[in-house]
Design a protein around this nucleic acid. Structure first.
Lengths: 252, 252
DNA sequence: TAAATAGTGTCTCTTAGACAATATTTG
DNA sequence: CAAATATTGTCTAAGAGACACTATTTA
């Protein structure tokens, strides 16, 4: 880095952002029933031909949405912009999780991709169906998605993305972003059960009691709903609170 | 991404790796005393002139070690290589923690940097002093390092790196990489006290008891040392064990 | 009133944290 | 023996997990 001369170094052929857009949808939702949820990933199908009518690269395969970064923006801003263009949503939880730069990962040359994940709650997703243009877009269950024929190294990126979101759901308050601002214990439970089946979470009595002691969740005093059961259920909301995640401390 | 034409997109002018090399050194070490540790960051001083004798860019400023990524390697591999070249150490805990690509961050053009941190234990660092070539290399306490005149956007990268390592020390078993393979409770405690002053860690009796119940640390039965006290002290080692870091579970 | 989900009572066991007291060395 | 660090004893309070039981509503 001391002696820099542009000609000395080969430069990349492209700089891109990819986005793993996650949503959690109810597998079924009935009156007076707590939901059963499923974690979904949004993919697009690459068109067969490009704008010049030639066969497109990786045509017909499923891929993460994304695109080239503009020199006037960061990869993160590019991901925000592309997420907006693709799904019409803004102010969404978006996070960088990896760099994909293995030589040969893209047949077009030395192309570096920054991978991000986004959390789009169900109700924001309705908007997408409206904004949806010609390109084929579909939500796949994370249990199925890796069986698809995926473009480039997106199988690897998606595997990493799923692993990251599983951890984030349990180790941070990211579940917040899958839920409405006011939610019941069984709705939070349903979100968490997409990534764990531990008894502390799956046993209703245990979890209903635990939610009251979580430092980052507060009961909305006196406010109840009957959307998950005939008996009115207490509503909760996430609050900003710093959480102690140290391995060497007890949980407070 | 559908319609790709090389001429359509501007490409980056450079792709680099930077490395924040951390070590923890004893502030003082005496016979029969537990150590008092301090977290240090290794920086290099940029030379005044480049290989052609012209004034170097950001000359004379302190900077993270790093350099340009070769098209045949990943940024991570580049960081490994540069860490080896700079410090002579291999098989070190090295981790990617951020992408720095803000427009204008480097006056030479559109240059993207992947930031990594490395943990080099004290005894490996001795090797460095041997391998050390002409370039000026120094270790700075993280308490002081941000007061220096730093090159490029390295102040921002370093701020992030310090925050990341503080979290990693408490939220993962990264403390392992700062310690010899066999260590006493007070040695682990000294490492942790560089980033926290919570009573659960600073109180000797509490911590000496806690270390026995940590699922990722095991007592080395019957093995003791007198390097930290006159009374022989039990030795421990880290073991591979998966740790439950879920916010919704109790610690086991 | 039956059915379904929400929520409480209660028991047992474990653990954290505080701090006092004891143990084991060296010089 | 004094000094210093390591370690155990002991008390208190809180919390987890299990599971039985109660509460509240709709159809």
């Amino acid at each position: 880095m001391q002696q820099y001369d542009v000609k000395k170094y080969r430069t990349p052929d492209g700089y891109t952002s990819d986005i793993a857009v996650f949503s959690i949808l109810p597998e079924k939702r009935e009156m007076f029933k707590p939901p059963v949820m499923d974690l979904k990933l949004m993919l697009i199908k690459r068109s067969m031909t490009n704008s010049e009518g030639k066969l497109n690269i990786e045509a017909g395969k499923w891929a993460l949405p994304g695109g080239f970064v503009d020199p006037a923006e960061t990869a993160f801003q590019s991901a925000q912009r592309e997420l907006m263009e693709e799904t019409g949503v803004e102010n969404i939880h978006l996070e960088h999780f990896g760099v994909y730069d293995a030589p040969g990962r893209d047949p077009r040359g030395w192309i570096i991709s920054n991978a991000h994940f986004a959390i789009v709650p169900e109700h924001q997703l309705a908007k997408r169906q409206a904004n949806d243009d010609a390109s084929e877009v579909e939500l796949f269950s994370v249990k199925e998605v890796l069986k698809l024929d995926l473009a480039f190294d997106h199988a690897e990126i998606i595997r990493d993305a799923i692993s990251v979101i599983r951890h984030k759901l349990l180790e941070t308050t990211a579940a917040k972003d899958f839920l409405p601002s006011e939610f019941t214990y069984s709705e939070l439970q349903a979100v968490l059960l997409t990534v764990t089946n531990d008894s502390a979470i799956s046993l209703d009595a245990a979890f209903a009691r635990k939610i009251k002691s979580l430092p980052f969740i507060r009961e909305i005093t006196g406010k109840k709903t009957t959307r998950t059961s005939k008996k009115p259920t207490q509503l909760y909301r996430f609050i900003d609170a710093d959480v102690n995640t140290s391995l060497y401390h007890s949980r407070k």
